[in-house]
């Protein structure tokens, strides 16, 4: 299974008054990782449009952390896929996401078949 890796430095604007990364920012970080994953295979102006997101928060991230998002894609059927996304700081897992999504083109949001380049190494 092909793994895509996206690196991101936590800015102060991602943190909250508790001193940690605000929980919904992991959703935005994971979206950036999915966009870069599509760019890696030459599919720009596309979006993996989420229908369902499950996220487990393991450890808090803090300002200035360098995190990596490890993304892998598995198919549900020829239209839908699940993207597993692990956000980690070194060996410490901060958040694990499961994103059920459909690939759509922009700006019309028409459905596009998920290419095998996302799932195959």
């Amino acid at each position: 299974m092909r793994e895509f890796i996206y690196s991101y430095r936590i800015p102060l604007s991602d943190t909250d008054a508790g001193g940690i990364v605000y929980h919904s920012n992991y959703i935005a970080i994971a979206e950036r990782a999915r966009a870069e994953m599509l760019r890696d295979i030459g599919m720009e102006r596309m979006v993996l449009d989420a229908e369902e997101i499950s996220v487990e928060y393991k450890r808090p991230g803090i300002f200035d952390d360098l995190v990596t998002v490890h993304s892998t894609v598995s198919m549900i059927d020829d239209r839908r896929c699940v993207i597993s996304q692990i956000t980690a700081r070194g060996d410490d897992i901060l958040a694990e996401l499961q994103v059920k999504a459909v690939l759509r083109s922009l700006p019309d949001l028409g459905e596009v078949p998920v290419p095998h380049e996302l799932t195959e190494a």
């Binding site: 508790g18 929980h23 229908e51 369902e52 997101i53 499950s54 996220v55 487990e56 928060y57 808090p60």
Partner: peptide, 12 residues
């Protein structure tokens, strides 16, 4: 004491 979120499942 802080409240923290352990997990969320959201269906759109």
């Amino acid at each position: 004491i802080l409240t923290v979120i352990k997990s969320i499942n959201c269906r759109k």
